[in-house]
Nucleic acid binder design. Structure first.
Lengths: 120, 120
DNA sequence: TTGATATTGATAACCATTATCATATTTAAT
DNA sequence: ATTAAATATGATAATGGTTATCAATATCAA
């Protein structure tokens, strides 16, 4: 679990479990794919890893110590992400929910683009 | 394809391909699962069906003729959804993208709650 | 009609994720 | 330190949604 977390931290952005597993194996670590999945799930439950789901069918993970609610702007090329404040958007969703009488409203934002480094 | 579209329209909200297939079969239609997937994909490409991805691993679809960019507030119980205007949120994402120098930024919002009808 | 093209349904293949299980490792109590 | 119980690990099988394959059928043009 520590191994997985460190690898994810050194990754610096979003990465899939499969990719993380491959990189750990390439580095010579003796680790199983199941352990990578288990660790990522535990870490996300404990709040030190955030989960996102891109357009493809893979779930992607990123180390993030910030337990407060926020969102990420993610690079579709390299997976790098910046934490973004979303007060405005929070207020917007709350008012929309109220307007239509929906309760227990939660939201997930997937905001992707190309980061400055990945722009040729 | 027409059959799938009509079934999706009569559904009135978000539903998975598997569920739609089951309902069509239960109704006595002679249709294959592959055709349901193919039709939904074509329809989403032509812009008459929108795609969302819930918490679970299923992709869900909803008929939506509106080609303009907007979002949906969806009920996690019954799949019903209301179209919501998102001007505010659009401006917010655009300004965030500019702030961090990201280009070609797109976003997907998944906003779910419990609709008035499903509140006991 | 007839031949070419496209669509369909059944089913196999795919692939990310999860469950299983025997082994190894850690922990706790004596 | 020893040992027994509890837990974590790695390998691999199983799961399930989605896609690819392919023969059969339907559509269309000449």
């Amino acid at each position: 679990m520590d191994l997985v977390y460190e690898a994810l931290v050194s990754e610096g952005g979003f990465v899939s479990a499969q990719d993380l597993y491959r990189k750990l194996k390439d580095r010579g670590e003796n680790i199983g794919l199941a352990t990578v999945y288990r660790s990522l799930q535990s870490l996300s439950e404990s709040g030190s890893v955030v989960i996102a789901r891109g357009d493809d069918s893979e779930t992607i993970y990123s180390a993030c110590e910030d337990g407060t609610h926020h969102h990420h702007l993610r690079c579709k090329r390299c997976g790098a992400s910046v934490k973004i404040d979303s007060e405005e958007a929070e207020r917007w969703t709350a008012s929309v929910a109220r307007e239509y009488g929906y309760v227990e409203v939660s939201h997930t934002f997937d905001i992707v683009g190309i980061c400055p480094k990945c722009q040729t």
